[in-house]
C-alpha cells in the first residue's frame, strides 16, 4: 500500500503532462460566439444611405442572411471587400452590412469607392446592435437562418478558403433544412 502512495505524485504529473500536451494543439485565442443558437435581437437603427428610414429585424429578409460587420477604421475589411462582391452571386444568401461605430460620411465614400455589395447597410453609430450580438471587432460575419436564429459568427476577413471551409457547409445544411421544412 505504502509503495503505491509513493507513486501518486508521478501519476498526478503524468495527468498534468497529458493536459499540457493537449493544450499545445488548442487555440486559446479562438473565441466562439455566445449568441449561437439564440435569435437575432430586434433593433431600431437607421439605414446608412437613407438615415430617415429606420430598419428593424424584419427588414433583414431572406432565407439565409449574412450580416457583415464592417467599418472604415477596419483595415482588414478592405481585404475582405472583393470577396464579398463575389459571394453575393450565390442566390441562397442575402448579404447585409452592419456599419459599426463609424463616421457616416466616410462610410458612404468608402462604399462609393469600393462598391456596395450589401442589400443595405445598417448605420450603427453607437454600436448598440453590435453590442447586442456580441461583436468585439471588425470584420465579423454572422449567419442567420430562416427562423431568425444566429447559426455562426466568423471573426476575421472572408476569403476563398474561408468561404469554402467555414461558410459553404453551413449554408448547405440550412438549405437542406429549408427544403425539408417546405416539403
Amino acid at each position: 500500500m505504502k509503495s503505491i502512495i509513493r507513486f501518486i505524485p508521478l501519476i498526478l504529473f503524468v495527468l498534468l503532462g497529458a493536459l499540457l500536451y493537449r493544450g499545445l494543439f488548442l487555440n486559446p485565442q479562438a473565441m466562439p460566439s455566445a449568441m449561437i443558437g439564440k435569435p437575432l435581437p430586434d433593433f431600431e437603427l437607421p439605414r446608412l444611405k437613407a438615415t430617415e428610414q429606420m430598419l428593424g429585424r424584419d427588414d433583414l429578409k431572406g432565407d439565409i442572411v449574412l450580416l457583415n460587420v464592417w467599418a472604415t477604421w477596419c483595415i482588414q475589411c478592405k481585404y475582405e471587400h472583393p470577396y464579398l462582391l463575389d459571394i453575393i452571386a450565390d442566390p441562397r444568401i442575402k448579404l447585409y452590412g452592419l456599419n459599426f461605430t463609424d463616421d457616416r460620411n466616410a462610410a458612404l465614400r468608402w462604399l462609393k469607392q469600393y462598391q456596395d455589395p450589401y442589400v443595405f447597410s445598417i448605420f450603427d453609430e453607437q454600436g448598440a446592435l453590435g453590442l447586442d450580438i456580441g461583436v468585439f471587432g471588425a470584420p465579423e460575419t454572422f449567419v442567420i437562418d430562416h427562423t431568425g436564429i444566429i447559426r455562426k459568427r466568423f471573426a476575421g476577413p472572408i476569403n476563398d478558403k474561408v468561404w469554402q471551409k467555414e461558410f459553404l457547409p453551413l449554408i448547405d445544411t440550412i438549405s437542406a433544412e429549408i427544403a425539408q421544412g417546405a416539403s
Partner: peptide, 14 residues
C-alpha cells in the same frame, strides 16, 4: 526532469 525525479522518488523513497 520531473517524471524522472518522481520515478526516482517512488523507487528510492523507502
Amino acid at each position: 526532469a520531473v517524471g524522472g525525479s518522481l520515478t526516482l522518488y517512488a523507487i528510492r523513497a523507502a
